[in-house]
Simulated assay, not measured.
Amino acid sequence: MAAYVVCVREAVGATEILLTRWIAPDGGKRWTLPGGGMRHGEDPIATAVREVAEETGYTAELIGLIGIDSINRRYPRPRGEFADFHGLRIVYEGRITAGELRNEINGSTDLAAWHPLDDVVHLDRVELVDIGIELWRTRPALGRASG
């Protein structure tokens, strides 16, 4: 279980989205939404607010739930075994209320930045970014992206 936040703002000349750059276990780096895994017993709203603060330096206020994404992954593990991963990603819309943008140190991300929404298609990003943007734009009744 994980919780993520779509933060969009109007800036001079562009609509921008807040993204963080995730460091994959293999060392690769791709842009993602601020957020991450829930701690045992932690409320998903608290997770989302905490993760935004950890990864960006900002305090976020959540506006609403915009969707839930369910993913399944099967990938190789050592000794020829395979992991069967199932994840639920809760996606909120949020707005920044305080703080100063900064990068996370010694965490799962290394950069935080605002990007023009129209330029996101050109970024090396995880699929969750596109899912979050679609949820934010369409507000589907069942909270699920069409993809």
Rank of each mutant, 00 (worst) to 15 (best):
I45E: 11
L128V: 07
H40E: 14
I96N: 05
Y4K: 01
T109E: 00
I66T: 07
F85P: 04
R89F: 07
E10H: 09
T59R: 06
L135C: 06
E10F: 04
L65E: 09
D124G: 05
G36E: 03
R139Y: 05
P25S: 11
L62N: 04
I45R: 04
R79T: 06
L128C: 04
R139V: 03
P140M: 11
G99T: 10
I71K: 12
T138P: 02
G35C: 09
G147Y: 15
I133L: 14
F85A: 13
E51L: 10
S108C: 07
V120C: 12
A24Y: 15
I105M: 12
G107F: 10
A141V: 13
L62R: 04
Y75Q: 13
P44Y: 02
D110H: 15
T20Y: 00
A145H: 09
E61F: 08
R137L: 15
F85G: 06
G107Y: 12
I45F: 04
G80N: 10
V12R: 15
A46M: 10
L19F: 06
D110K: 09
I96P: 01
E10C: 03
Y58D: 00
R73K: 12
R50C: 00
R9G: 01
G94L: 02
D43T: 10
E93Q: 08
E54K: 01
D69M: 07
G36L: 04
A53W: 10
P140H: 14
I17R: 07
R74K: 09
E93G: 08
N72S: 11
G107E: 08
R9S: 12
A83C: 09
G13N: 07
L123Y: 02
K29W: 03
G27D: 04
S108W: 15
L128M: 14
M38Q: 13
